[in-house]
């Protein structure tokens, strides 16, 4: 009798995410929310200027992005431990789709060098020009609708993305806006390796939505990106992302 009652209750109760969209719907809604497929496809470079904040110190920052997975961060005044603003130092971290490299981590370091594995992995996670939800089938990624999740008080849909090249990411799309509230990397988040990115202050620039605040949790530490200026489709040479000859 008790078992029958339990079964009836189970059958009549909605599943935790019975109203969840399919992964295809979620991916489509995301794409519409950020500006639409046509608009997204028309963009091949981005230049973001703003402030990188670490340990309470502001560092002027420029980020260059280029399809498909080229990224370069130039951060002014950031010394190795983020103790204070060091005007003589400019840190560069870049990935050209093949090689992750850095420059200027300390007063002593001279020339460019290959990034250690943990830092390289972080940069590669940040490198893709597009979110993996875009053209996920074509790219070979696999999506799974995990269900509802709360991110900083926002109701979100949690999607698990198994990347074609290996590894898993978790994307949390705001149910109202379909914009990402958070992305987390499975298996990362060690003592110094970023494990999650929180996106906020979305604003439309030239028809596309850009998060103007990004909070990155890196194990026991965190960093904040405050984007102040966005340039869409500026001219950016591929060489910007290549490691200079030492």
């Amino acid at each position: 009798m008790q078992a029958t009652l339990m079964l009836l209750l189970m059958l009549s109760a909605p599943t935790p995410f019975s109203d969840a969209p399919s992964v295809e719907e979620a991916a489509n809604n995301y794409l519409k929310a950020v500006g639409g497929a046509q608009k997204q496809a028309s963009i091949s470079t981005l230049k973001l200027t703003g402030m990188y904040v670490y340990n309470g110190i502001e560092h002027p920052m420029v980020i260059h992005r280029k399809r498909d997975d080229k990224v370069r961060f130039d951060i002014q005044g950031l010394n190795r431990f983020g103790t204070q603003f060091s005007p003589e130092i400019k840190v560069v971290r870049a990935y050209n789709g093949k090689e992750a490299w850095g420059m200027g981590e300390s007063r002593q370091s001279k020339g460019a060098y290959a990034l250690p594995a943990e830092a390289a992995a972080t940069l590669k996670n940040e490198a893709p020009f597009e979110c993996p939800l875009v053209d996920y089938k074509k790219k070979g990624h696999k999506l799974l609708m995990v269900g509802s999740a709360d991110v900083d008080g926002a109701d979100t849909w949690h999607l698990e993305v198994t990347l074609a090249g290996g590894g898993k990411q978790h994307w949390y799309l705001n149910k109202k806006t379909w914009l990402p509230a958070k992305m987390a990397v499975e298996g990362a988040g060690g003592r110094f390796a970023p494990g999650s990115w929180i996106f906020d202050e979305w604003r439309k620039v030239d028809g596309i939505m850009i998060a103007h605040f990004v909070f990155m949790e890196e194990g026991i530490f965190s960093r904040e990106y405050f984007i102040e200026k966005v340039e869409v489709n500026p001219t950016v040479q591929d060489s910007v992302f290549n490691k200079p000859a030492s």
Binding site: V53, G56, D150, D152, G153, I198, D200, F213, F215, E217, I220, F221, S222, E224, F226
Partner: peptide, 24 residues
């Protein structure tokens, strides 16, 4: 909570709200 400003019920541990952008 590290660099996240947070409100919580300290008995149940339930998070009430968070705000970011103020650092530590």
């Amino acid at each position: 909570h590290k660099a996240t400003f947070k409100c919580m019920d300290v008995v149940t541990q339930e998070q009430k709200w968070v705000k970011r952008g103020l650092g530590k």
